[in-house]
Amino acid sequence: MKRIQSSPPRRSPVNRRLAPTRRPLADVRKAEVAALFAELWEQSLKSDGLRRVESLRRAEALASKAGAEEATVAAGDVAPCLFIDRPVRSGQSIRFPEGSVTIFGSVSSGAEIVAGGSIHVYGALRGRAFAGFGGDSGARIICSSLDPELLVINGLYTTADEIAASLRNKPAQVRVDGQAMSVTALD
């Protein structure tokens, strides 16, 4: 973690080889991801760019109460950030097209996070993460342990199979580098 403050994250040689993840994928899979993305878009746009599932609604309700310990929406003149102070379980979906999402806990396999900005997971990322949803290619996905089902940043995607084994289950950062997804270790 210290390293990222002073110098850009080191890229492993394995990853450099892997970096052009944009290698042609089967059209079917491409179409699937496109459809998934379109569906997410639609759902978010339908309700004024905001549709949140129960977990988030509950989180907000809690945040509005006195305690506000489980989840808080921090909004200022900058882009808002949603904090979730518990694990995101299989089947749950956190959607926050307005800004970034930070999760203190793990994201289970079968769960999904959709964020307009970046996604930070202080725990294991085992589910699906959609960052930069809505057109932000500068968004990143950062987690303490990388083992995702699907990583998407502004429509570019990569699956667990395409991530080098050396990067898995370790702290990592994912971002868009030109036209490709780049996955780098954090330490």
Partner: peptide, 18 residues
């Protein structure tokens, strides 16, 4: 384990207590 994870999510959202 995955199904249990799903159930824990429901326990945290669909129960009276939650």
């Amino acid at each position: 384990v995955r199904d249990s994870d799903r159930i824990i999510g429901l326990l945290d959202s669909k129960t009276e207590k939650a």
